[in-house]
Design a protein around this nucleic acid. Structure first.
Length: 471
RNA sequence: GGCGCCGUGGCCAAGUGGUAAGGCGGCAGACUGCAAAUCUGCUAUUCGUCAGUUCGAUUCUGACCGGCGCCUCCA
């Protein structure tokens, strides 16, 4: 049996290409992480969920993953916040980093192998700048900062395909960079300002006190932990330019080697029809999800219901559809767990579903197709389970197939446990209802049911007794 | 101004040069004391508009309309 093809869209070539790790075993992925000055919003998490899907699909394919996600803990906004609060950047970033990991855990985003911080890699960054200066690809300007000279790097623009001469009307204005030789040159090392010193954001370097430019940390940490040529580099679509373009320039400029074989970018999450962004004030966070009682599984379902390269508009209607969808998945899982057997037909239904899901995921992470196949599986399997078969092997096959499908999507809602007091009350009421029903006093039974449901609890009568759950 | 993406049923969303997956919602039926859950059937003769290519286009080409994004520090 030949190994299945694994296809991914590569921004570098603008094509879906066949992918496999360079060493045949471990996929080395670098994913641009959050700037920890405020809790990441759901748009950020859409990207992180796409990366989670990628790593899980790779693992399902049978490869190992070594993923590095950086935490940007020094940048203009962090310095500004520290400056305003009269503290240091470390004091700003520490609590936000904790929130990030908690939010990530809530959304069941798997741990990357490493979460390096920019401030822990200043020497590595300085080393890259040195090499670039030696190669005359970078220069120290009058303002004390070091800039990358983009016209010395012939491949500049190969990722974003932006013609640097065409940056014109409508574009955000280029400001206050008089010292640069070329307006498009970007900072590798920024000369320290008083507030940098005050907030602990300045380090010694061969060019004087200063701090790293934005792009530098990713080049330094990616190459340190994953080697000079990565398998895949991911991020949000807005990072293509300038961030990733500049990473390529720095990295390839300093090593002379290809920086990343594949570049993969996730599209935006929109709210109210436009990009979710802090500066637009339309951000929602994981905390909002918690407050609204949206299960993590439902948000995963919602994100995966649209292909990662397509914009996704968040609406309460769509979110509710996902909540209902994962409720159905959860009921199915429970049914699968409680079944004693199944009809033999279930065996093929499960195998077909798994094959379809796998094929979809390996074809540029087509999660919407995978979800479609999962729901078809659930409908057909429920129909078989309705027939009360006794085939244990078919049942076991279905359980395992579901398990593998869910190992990538992870869309089973967490079972919400009621507190013991409520549970005792519900059990007592259900007993009363059962007595009423056995006396055929249905009006009383229905009254009790309404009483239970008014507390936000759903009940359903089954051949094996009455079940209930919070809803 | 340059570059790019998108427009499929009430909502969300796949998809292919050969005649529209799936989910949510709705309607009807089976089951149930009644519900719920589950299952079954129905719910787009049509894929923004107009042309063109083709035996045939939602799928290719062009124009137009509409939405979104990038063009230096935003996932």
């Amino acid at each position: 049996m030949t190994a299945p093809d694994f296809r991914l869209y590569n921004t570098l070539t603008r094509k879906v290409e066949s992918f496999s790790p360079a060493d045949g075993k471990t996929v080395r992925i670098y994913t641009c992480g959050p700037t920890v000055y405020r809790p990441a919003h759901l748009g950020n998490f859409r990207t992180f969920l796409f990366e989670d899907l990628l790593r899980r699909a790779i693992e399902l394919r049978g490869w190992k993953v070594k993923q590095v996600m950086n935490l940007t803990d020094v940048d203009d906004k962090i310095i500004k916040a520290a400056s305003e609060q009269g503290t240091t950047i470390a004091e700003v970033t520490a609590p936000i980093t904790k929130i990030f990991h908690a939010d990530r855990a809530f959304l069941r985003i798997q741990d990357a192998e490493l979460y390096p911080k920019a401030t822990d890699h200043i020497p590595e960054m300085i080393e890259i700048v040195k090499r670039l200066v030696d190669k005359k690809l970078a220069y120290k300007a009058d303002d004390g900062s070091v800039y990358f000279a983009i016209d010395k790097f012939k491949d500049y623009g190969k990722l974003s395909r932006l013609d640097t001469r065409e940056v014109k009307a409508g574009a955000r204005v280029i400001q206050d960079d008089y010292s640069k030789e070329n307006a498009q040159d970007f900072a590798l090392w920024k000369a320290a300002k008083p507030e940098d010193e005050r907030t602990g954001a300045a380090w010694d370097s061969p060019w004087g006190r200063g701090r790293p430019g934005w792009h530098l940390e990713c080049s330094a940490m990616a190459m340190k932990y994953l080697g000079e040529t990565l398998d895949i580099h991911c991020g949000g679509i807005d990072l293509i330019f300038p961030h990733h373009e500049d990473e390529i320039a720095q990295s390839e400029g300093s090593t002379g080697k290809l920086f990343s074989r594949f570049w993969c970018h996730g599209e935006f999450l929109l709210t109210e029809g436009s990009k979710m962004a802090k500066r637009l004030g339309n951000v929602a966070t994981v905390q909002d999800l918690r407050d609204q009682g949206v299960p993590a599984a439902a948000f995963r379902h919602f994100v995966f219901s649209t292909h990662y390269r397509k914009q996704l508009n968040m609406s309460s209607e769509a979110l509710e559809g996902s909540i209902e969808g994962v409720r159905r998945i959860g009921d199915f899982v429970q049914r699968l767990a409680e079944a004693k057997g199944a009809t033999p037909e279930l065996e093929k239904i499960a195998a077909d579903a798994e094959a379809e899901v796998t094929a979809a995921l390996f074809d540029d992470l087509n999660a919407p197709i995978a979800l479609g196949a999962l729901f078809t599986f659930i409908r057909k399997a429920n129909a078989e389970l309705d027939r009360n078969g006794v085939d244990k092997r078919a049942l076991e096959t279905a359980r395992k197939a579901f398990g593998r499908i869910n190992s990538v999507l992870d869309v089973v809602p967490e079972s919400v446990g009621a507190d013991p007091e409520i549970a005792r009350w519900v059990e007592e009421r259900l007993t009363a209802r059962k007595d009423a029903r056995s006396r055929r006093e249905f009006a009383e039974a229905d009254r009790i049911r309404a009483e239970i449901e008014s507390k936000g609890i759903a009940i359903e009568d089954t051949p094996h007794g009455t079940k209930w759950r919070l809803r």
